[in-house]
Amino acid sequence: MLEEVLIAGFGGQGIMSTGQLLAYAGMQEQKHVAWIPSYGPEMRGGTANCGITLSDTPISSPLVTEPTCLLAMNQPSFEKYAPMVVPGGIIFYNSSLINTGGISVPYPIFAIPANAIAEELGNVRVACNVLLGAYLGYSKVIPVDAAVRALEKVLPPHRHKLIPVNQKALEKGAALGREYRKGGA
């Protein structure tokens, strides 16, 4: 197993911490993991992205340049990164903010109304974790539970009161992901 996940969106959407959550959960599931924040020109313009590699064997290159999975949180990052996803890859996008313009790509692409779900849960900042939940529910790369358990490690102690809402976000997303899976999309 070698998963190279790119999470991208605006700064402030929780991109970095969702990425760290995935890395931490992967580590606790005995995977080799690496997390790298965006670098170079991409750091400008309020965009944020990070790459997470999960693997059964030691990770050669931790740089995610050809992602097997894209979690896109806003329109510019969808447009920029969707074409980079490798054949056989997969995309989950935040359909609350992204209009795909009916693009056709040779791999599965799933709409998740992440902002809407997060707002329903009472905290728009957990939207990115809805996408992560969807990816884990669909792919079963690691159990969603692992991500839930990692929350307490990744969130600083003064944010621990936010664990329940983050857990709900992951679980709601996971339920959608599992449905997509069943639907044989």
């Binding site: 760290q20 080799h32 690496a34 997390w35 790298i36 931790p62």
Partner: peptide, 10 residues
């Protein structure tokens, strides 16, 4: 370099 410095690994 900055990649090694910013990268997280177990």
């Amino acid at each position: 370099d900055g990649i090694l410095g910013q990268m997280m690994e177990p």
